[in-house]
Every structure is written in C-alpha cells, then in structure tokens.
C-alpha cells in the first residue's frame, strides 16, 4: 500500500473511533422522546425543564427529555417508520390517527385517554398583516378582494394550513346558508390570491416576514404571536377574524413503545402534567389558549374573543374533512383544475 492511501485510511479509522457513540454510558437514566410539530419548539423547551423539576421532586428520578420538531405529517410518518417516540404532541388528530391505523403503536381510541379530546391547549387561525394594515384586512371577506395577496402553506403538506383552509370554508358556509357550491366559489377565490404555497407553517412565516411577500399571512395564533415577538421592529399586527376554527393540537402516549421501553408511567405523567396549573400557565405564556379556567383568566388579555366552530360540528370529523377536501381530486385540487 502506498503512503497517501495508508495515511488516508488511518485518518478514516481515527475519525470513526472519535465519532462512534460511547457504549453503555448512563444506562439508568430515564429518557423520553417527545415527537412534536413545528411551532411548539419554544413551549416544550420550557415545559420540559418544568416537568423534570416536578418529576424529580415527586419520585427522585432524573428524567431527560429529547425533542423532535418538524411538520406534523412528516413527524407522524417518522413515528410510523420506526422513530421511537414515547409521546407524540402533534398539530392535528388526523396525524395521530394515522399512526394508530398505520402502525398500531397506539389504540384507535387514543383521543379518549386524556381530558378535552386529549388536547391540553387549543389554538386557532388568525391573520397577520403588515404595519398599519395597509389593505384594511378585518375579516375573511377581505381576503378574496382583488389585489390582496394571501400567504398560507399547502394544506396537503401542512397541518396548520388544513386548519386555515377549514376555518375559511366554515366561514363561507356560515355566510351562505351552508351552501357548499357558494363556499367552494369563495375558497377558490381565496386560493387564487395565494402567490406561494409553502410546504409548512414555518416556511410560510419566512416567506411573509423575511421575504416580504403577501399582504396577509394565515397562521396559528401562537405562531403569529411569535412573529410579533421575533420581528417586533417590523410592526406586524394580528387581526382576529370574527369567526375562526377551534384547533385542537392533541397529545398521546405511544403505548407500544413505552411498554417496551418501560417508560409508560413517566410518559403518562408527562402528558398529564400539561393539564396542571404550571403546564397550563406555560401554554398560555407561549400563546396557546389554556383549557384550565385559572390560566385562561390570567392570559385573557392576550387573546381576542372569537367565535369558534369545531371540525366535528361543521365537517363531521377529520377523516371526512380529509377525504372531501384534501384527498386527490378533492375540493382543494378542484380549485386548480381548469
């Protein structure tokens, strides 16, 4: 073997040895993996620290929690494909349903295991507009005016965008005596005002805030508040329409995985603690609407009152809404068909 090749191989071996994971380090520590969606990053970072303190005080055990964030649908796919999540905290029930049906890692009735449809906090869809609201956008009707550019992600790839689409559709149904034909006309007009369909909620935020495209961004309420905080110099404003949808981001223990890993008790406690006063207060602090009356009262000032419809009332649940609106050839596809 010649010298350079030998040297190269040696370097490779050294690199391997350095990067290989240390074997059997800290085997006794309890580890949890929470697989979540994009806009919860800041909230769970703070919540995890609170839970670790609480669990240590209660049982004396050290627990370390890892987080994974991404688009809700993609995260669900990763879990189906073998990512060992102890708990999932996703953007919509449809994604956890998919984990249940595709992999049977959790029972089909997972949503009945915890209070409030297993959704410890709620959110809704609001509008984010530029400084001074130059286009005078106040309600859904203003989004279909000519010359208004609306930024919203693709409902086929983004959970938040599905909530936004359904909120708009529910509004149109309400305005038109539940007439589907009129609602479709409205929704078509709305999406014809959309110049960019980003794949996910964060992407749409970047398009609107950093690339300065569009007059209004349809997004999660908590994401809108985050943008205000992040870009407060730009002077964005949140506009809450008179009616929107009650978005319930659900949580669940991935039972098969926790049983195998022996983490069922701590995973269960981790999710239940979300309903505690401390958990609810942190949710409110990160702009999720708390369920608990005490925390809700504390943060009442930051949430504008809005009339909320639910997906079960208007669309008969996720499975049906998915099939009618977002499946291939569904209403969303029809918007773009000539």
């Amino acid at each position: 073997m010649n010298k350079p090749v030998q040297r190269f191989l040696t370097i490779c071996l050294v690199a391997l040895a350095v990067t290989a994971p240390p074997i059997a380090a800290s085997a006794k520590e309890i580890k949890l993996l929470n697989v979540s969606y994009d806009p919860t990053r800041e909230f769970y970072t703070e919540y995890n620290a609170a839970f670790i303190r609480y669990w240590k005080a209660k049982t004396g055990d050290e627990v370390s929690i890892s987080q994974s964030h991404g688009g809700s649908g993609k995260q669900a796919q990763s879990v189906v494909n073998g990512l060992e999540a102890d708990v999932v905290t996703l953007g919509l029930a449809f994604d956890i349903d998919a984990i249940a049906t595709q992999s049977r890692l959790l029972p089909a009735d997972w949503q009945k295991k915890l209070p409030n449809n297993s959704s410890p906090y709620t959110s809704t869809i609001v509008f984010l507009v530029r400084k001074g609201n130059p286009k005078g956008i106040k309600d859904w009707e203003d989004l279909v005016k000519t010359g208004v550019k609306v930024v919203v992600p693709n409902p086929k790839t983004s959970g938040g965008a599905r909530w936004a689409y359904l909120a708009a559709y529910a509004y149109a149904l309400g305005q038109n005596h539940q007439d589907d034909v009129a609602a479709k006309v409205f929704i078509k007009k709305l999406y014809q005002n959309v110049p960019v369909l980003d794949p996910g909620a964060r992407g749409a935020t970047v398009t609107f805030a950093q690339r300065e495209i569009g007059d209004v961004l349809l997004t999660w309420e908590n994401e809108a508040h985050l943008v205000l905080k992040e870009f407060n110099s730009a002077g964005y404003e949140i506009v809450t329409p008179h009616q929107s949808i009650l978005a319930e981001p659900p949580v669940a223990v991935v039972e098969r995985t926790t049983k195998r890993r022996g983490t069922t008790a701590v995973a269960q406690a981790y999710l239940e603690y979300l309903y505690s006063d401390e958990g609810q207060e942190l949710a409110g602090k990160h702009f999720y609407r708390p369920r608990n009356a005490k925390a809700a009262a504390k943060f009442a000032a930051q949430f504008t009152a809005v009339e909320l419809v639910t997906i079960d009332q208007v669309f008969g649940g996720w499975a049906k809404a998915q099939k009618t609106h977002f499946a291939d050839g569904g209403v969303f596809d029809q918007i773009y068909h000539p």
Partner: peptide, 25 residues
Amino acid sequence: IFIAGNIPMKTQITPVIIMAELDMF
C-alpha cells in the same frame, strides 16, 4: 421549493406532489 411558489398546475414540481401524497399517508 423555496423559490418555486409551488402553485399547482403552474410552479409545482413533481417531488412536491410526492411529498404531498406522503403527508397524507
């Protein structure tokens, strides 16, 4: 995906359609 706009029929490339199908499981 960052520069295309991803509007169906106009600026949506095939990999985006594949991703959309995956996201719907």
